[in-house]
Design a protein around this nucleic acid. Structure first.
Lengths: 201, 201
DNA sequence: CCATGGGTGGCAGCTACTGTCAAACGGTGC
DNA sequence: GCACCGTTTGACAGTAGCTGCCACCCATGG
């Protein structure tokens, strides 16, 4: 993932604090529920001040949801990297697989986070808001791929939304099955439904 | 919409306060932006106390977004009312048209609200969260319609998500076009994309 | 006439979040 | 070693969203 770092020591320190904060937060939130945990508890567990917390995360929700930003840029990059001859269904399927594969790498941990998000209204709201950014990126990438003006056609918008619909369905079914269902199978099933629409341009 | 009222005077009084509050809020919010308006300003304009505001709306976002609840129940009811022989694409198209038609009834006012929602992250987040409820309702309704167990199959989930994808795309394009595009046309275009997927069961 | 219940306002309190400032830290040149 | 400087941090005060609580008003009904 991380290419050649050449990271200044300061940057690594920042990363360290950020990790400490997310770890402390996730543990507490999974234990007591989102609403019952205060920022003060989180920062006490991480050993920093409240002010520092808000220098790293814009909100209490962000500490859970921020990792999605990185996945969003990956998503778009993966779509852009696909050969342009590839039909949209295949290209999108590969692009969407990237964030899902990231879940499959640390299944236990990720499952807890996903369940926390899907079952906490405030987190779900922020999660969906972040996906709007993904959708926008996917749509413009798709449009340029097909040589269309970005906003003028319905297809790129709808295709992006359908891909994210698949993504959401996979996460939800994975979460509901307590991680027992295979992410790859779920992804196949979800994409099987939308392929006829994606490839009918 | 409202059947035979038989509304007690008390209920009508409640409705009156609620309307006063939403009117005051929408006017101020459209004027100054969501973040720059405080609850105190809204309640001052409506002539009630802050405490009363929170008896009518759970949050500052809710005063803009709450009307969606009613549209959600209509949505499901309209789908349930469709003849069971009708293919999913047609039934869903009719169901989704209900909330869109509600927009078409008061285009100017609704356009301002839609734009406010789509351009304010906090409102967008709550808006999407509300749609999750719609999705759930649509999915279970579709499942029972097709005689499937509610959570076991992918199709109802995906079909519901695709219908809402169409809904979202219509609103977004309508908003971006400043209301110039016809809602009926936009709906047709959006559904044209997903029909091949919806009717391939 | 009083009793009862729903709606209301005011207040005190919690929590998320922000602006500001001074202190601490880490690296750089002398 | 020491002064200089940018970055990071913590403490404090302040704002705003939101809630619990209680006293109060007022319409209805006995």
């Amino acid at each position: 993932m991380a290419s050649r770092p050449e990271v200044s020591l300061a940057q690594r320190k920042r990363q360290l604090v950020s990790n400490e904060l997310t770890e402390a937060a996730l543990q507490l939130l999974a234990l007591k529920g989102f609403d019952s945990v205060t920022i003060d508890e989180i920062v006490a567990a991480a050993g920093v001040s409240q002010r520092t917390f808000f220098r790293y995360f814009r909100s209490k929700e962000d500490v859970v949801v921020q990792f999605l930003v990185g996945m969003g840029v990956d998503l778009r990059a993966d779509l852009a990297a696909r050969p342009s001859a590839e039909p949209p269904s295949v290209a999108l399927r590969h692009a969407v697989w990237a964030p899902i594969a990231a879940c499959a790498d640390h299944p236990d941990r990720t499952l807890r986070v996903v369940q926390l998000i899907l079952r906490t209204p405030a987190l779900l709201a922020r999660f969906l808001e972040r996906q709007e950014q993904w959708r926008d990126d996917l749509a413009t990438e798709l449009a340029s791929r097909l040589g269309l003006a970005s906003g003028s056609e319905v297809y790129p918008q709808m295709a992006a939304r359908m891909a994210l619909a698949a993504f959401g369905t996979v996460l939800q079914r994975w979460s509901d099955s307590e991680g027992k269902e295979e992410l790859a199978d779920l992804t196949d099933q979800a994409f099987a439904v939308i392929v006829p629409a994606l490839d009918t341009i």
